[in-house]
Nucleic acid binder design. Structure first.
Lengths: 341, 341
DNA sequence: CTGAAAGCGCTTACAG
DNA sequence: CTGAAAGCGCTTACAG
């Protein structure tokens, strides 16, 4: 059996005083009214006996668990993993613990996680929501449970959110490609109704349509996530074998870029001579590609930090107005986006 | 304010019965002795009122939190992130929740995490330990707190562990390189006293020393993690510019391989013509390198699953003997390990 | 300066 | 078939 851990009661008994007194001392409350000698005796004894407060009991009594629930799309995705790390670090600074789960784009898993975390009395949520989550989010809002949405934004619901300027940075990126001389720019995106993806597509569409270059959907292909590899391959095959083939590609996500670049290499297409490249999201992997790749870098650290800050504020004060923070991504232009012909 | 959540007491009052009865019904206990009508009434009312059990209270009462503490080296490392995902999934199947933290190779952070998690009354730990953790691990063992070590193994302490055959697979990998005709094989490893690294080095040393090819340390260079990038660059520069330069390189970790390959490409060394390559750990990034890379793949899924299984077993039954599971890694030989001259 | 007492939301041995 | 009561480890208003 696990050794019984020592409680305040144990300390109190050993010292022949009340648990109330032990509690006051150990929490530094009423310190002005407590006998200094008693106080230090209590502290010493606590240390000696290896006292560890039981946070479960504390939480139950205070109806505050100092726990935040983090729901991510997929912790195995580097973007999520990085975010998880920042959020855990940041939460810890304020003595909060993080419990987490991956929703894997499944509505059922998402609901399940929310319920589990509620049972565990989390003080609030940081959520990268999945499609079909609106109803549940609305109910969290109604119950006044502090939440911050990250990455994905639901326009119908007034909730705290930390997102990035997906539309603008995509637009800027494409315009930059155009200025650099590319004029048949294709885009691969994930079929998704969630804002980051839709906004990136919209940014692309507006940029390529500007001044009537061509209408936005001519070189635009949506990919189904479950069948990603195969579809990326055939999409690229298609785009490069047209009468007027693409001369540049914009990958709307990490994973798309990964698979796309592999195929481009297999096709022996030269970047940027045959095809220019722009990717959304940074990846350590890009460094292994022969041509320095251009990408759009979201400020992950800031997203994580701000999400925690906003959440903790709204836990402390439920009257705060809803915050909707849009951070700026950075456009990093490398050789893959320079026309050389 | 957060709306008060509904408790068993609320249900009991509404129905004019005792909370005991509510508890019995909702937990399916004593179900043979309870009036079916009352039972279904309770269940319906619970559902209608949106009852959510308070796991904090339950845990306090049962001295069991259904929580496991996961301590990783660094959640932002793909290997860890993947592991975290498996462990969370696997734990969830048994209704356990995971709380996690990154120790970042810091002894202090590690201690801190253990204390925090103990305060939260975790039922057990899954731990990728840091250097200098022995003492604390020993104390966990003394307190009979269920633990499973992963990835890193401490020979002095009898604890459950799930690791992989680092020595053997490294040995095999190097022997394979030799069979393929490489005979001046270098290795870059992290300076670390922890088993995975030391075992990989030992495997390399034994393999290159076999039949007196050369002694094991001639082409062996240790890298300090904080200064990894620069040191990898200068290590490689050194190894390839000797009178008898290396004709192959074994990278003992993901990160080393990443930086090393970038530099090899910058030097315009051809893989495998100028230099053969073998990497420890798989990485999605390898696919972007121009030459298919050989690597050693640890069975991450199995590590995670087994760790959870062993942990839950030892939570349920503290009398179980210590388990020390060594899983087999897989050697994946690609063109980077084929001598072509 | 200190203690007795109630209560957070649950479970369970005991009694009827 | 059901209820009263104690207790898990804490905190805190109240009394002295």
């Amino acid at each position: 059996m696990i050794k019984k851990r020592v409680s305040m009661k144990d300390i109190a008994q050993r010292l022949g005083i009340s648990t109330a007194l032990v509690s006051y001392v150990l929490n530094g409350k009423l310190s002005d009214r407590i006998n200094k000698a008693t106080a230090s005796l209590v502290k010493d004894t606590a240390k000696e006996m290896g006292y560890q407060p039981n946070l479960l009991a504390k939480s139950l009594r205070n109806s505050k668990s100092y726990t935040i629930g983090l729901i991510l799309a997929d912790i195995a995705n580097p973007f999520s993993a990085h975010l998880a790390r920042i959020i855990e670090d940041e939460a810890k600074k304020s003595e909060y613990t993080v419990i987490f789960g991956s929703a894997d784009e499944s509505h059922l898993k998402f609901n399940d996680l929310v319920q589990t975390f509620l049972s565990r009395q989390v003080d609030g949520f940081i959520i990268a929501a999945v499609e079909g989550a609106e109803e549940l989010l609305r109910s969290l809002k109604e119950q006044n449970i502090p939440c911050v949405l990250i990455d994905r934004y639901f326009s119908g619901i007034e909730m705290n959110a930390v997102t990035t300027n997906n539309y603008q940075v995509s637009y800027d990126g494409i315009m930059k490609l155009r200025q650099n001389g590319f004029n048949r720019i294709g885009m691969l995106h994930l079929k998704s109704s969630l804002t980051p993806m839709t906004e990136r597509v919209r940014g692309y569409q507006d940029a390529v349509s500007k001044d009537n270059t061509y209408t936005g959907d001519r070189y635009l292909i949506g990919i189904d996530e479950p069948d990603l590899k195969l579809q990326v391959v055939s999409a690229i095959d298609q785009l490069v074998s047209r009468d007027e083939p693409v001369d540049a590609l914009f990958f709307a996500s990490n994973l798309l870029a990964m698979e796309g670049l592999i195929h481009i290499r297999n096709l022996n297409l030269r970047v940027p001579e045959d095809i220019g490249i722009l990717c959304f999201d940074q990846s350590a992997a890009y460094n292994l590609f022969y041509c320095p790749l251009s990408y759009i870098e979201q400020p992950i650290n800031e997203i994580g930090e701000q999400a925690v800050t906003i959440l903790l504020n709204s836990i402390d004060n439920s009257e705060l107005p809803v915050q909707d923070l849009v951070l700026e991504s950075r456009l990093v232009m490398e050789r893959s986006a320079l026309k050389t012909s």
